[in-house]
Amino acid sequence: MSATNRRRNRGIALLVVLWACTLLAILLGGFATLARTESIQTRYLSNRVQLRYLAEAGAMRALAECVSRSGGRWVGDGRRYRLRLQDHDIDIRIQDELGKVDINAADPRVLQRLFVAAGADDATATQLAANIQETRDTNAKLFHEEGAKRYAEAGLAGGPRYREFDMPEQLQTVLGMTPALYRKLAPAITVWSRRPEPTLALAPPLVLASQPDMDMPKAERYAALRAMTSTSTPPPPLPNGQSAGAWRGGLVRTIVASATDGQGTAASVIVTFRLTALKGGLGYSVLRWQEDGAG
């Protein structure tokens, strides 16, 4: 073999070695990136699980307060309570269902005002309130075919329920309800109060904003003032002069507990429960349990 051929072969071998080293470097880099990504995901999931259990601990703390012999010191008007556990912050709110608008019992005018406060225009709010009235009216079942046709034309299957709502989430099945509007309404609606009007002393800001001569800024300022008011004194009147009623709550309440790690990661639980009478005290039964939901 000539010297020229030997040099050519050595050059080819060198190129092959260089390409092999490059390929190995790429593979090793990919494996390292994959391992780092899996490690980050594992830490994130582990952190989320820890936060969820901390949020559950916050909910249990609120439940214990609600069933205490003294009736508890925590108020069901949505004011915030904070705990610190294992170097994490837990934010807790208790919302009495009497402060919300009952989509089974509320007058259509109450519903219409709530929808307007949530951002719907008057025409949309009026029609949506009428659709809810139709949906929960068992006598309207006689017009099932007409209702099913209107729903089908809007791309919705099944038509109106023609019976009461079992859960607040079922409001999303009503003709005219949008996901964006429902997200705003979710903390302000219920099926458990059985009242035609909400108790304003316990109402969340959106319900307060739906009252005459009220808006969201006024409602939020009032909620902040109410949160600083002791229940040993009557709740302050609304900015429009309307009485807020009494602090007395009902048997069904919702707890929203959120835990954060200070780096943007959070987990929350939403627990709706009913107080029950037990010999020598109070107990509770859970009606709804949600994780990372809206409340």
Rank of each mutant, 00 (worst) to 15 (best):
S2C: 01
A3I: 09
R7D: 07
R8T: 12
V16A: 13
V17I: 13
V17N: 00
L18Q: 05
L18C: 09
A20Y: 05
A20F: 11
T22Y: 00
L28E: 10
G30P: 04
A32V: 05
R36V: 11
R36Y: 12
T37N: 14
T42I: 11
V49R: 13
Q50M: 09
A55V: 04
E56L: 14
L63R: 05
E65S: 03
E65W: 03
S70F: 06
G71N: 13
W74I: 00
G76H: 01
R80S: 02
L85W: 15
H88W: 01
D89S: 09
I92W: 00
Q95E: 02
Q95D: 00
K100F: 01
K100N: 02
N104F: 07
R113W: 03
D121G: 05
N131I: 02
E134Q: 05
D137K: 10
L142M: 10
F143N: 11
E145P: 00
A148T: 11
K149C: 04
K149W: 10
L156I: 13
L156F: 07
R161L: 15
Y162E: 09
D166S: 15
E169M: 13
T173L: 15
G176T: 08
G176V: 06
K184N: 09
L185T: 00
P187T: 08
R195G: 10
P196D: 07
P196I: 07
P198Q: 04
A209I: 08
K218E: 02
E220L: 06
R221G: 10
A223R: 06
A224G: 07
A224H: 10
R226A: 09
R226I: 09
P235D: 08
P236K: 01
G241H: 12
G250M: 10
L251D: 14
I255A: 06
S258Q: 15
S258M: 14
A259F: 04
Q263A: 14
G264D: 00
G264M: 02
G264Y: 01
A267P: 01
F273S: 07
T276L: 09
G280H: 03
G281S: 03
L282G: 01
Y284D: 01
S285A: 08
S285Q: 10
L287R: 08
D292H: 06
G295R: 03
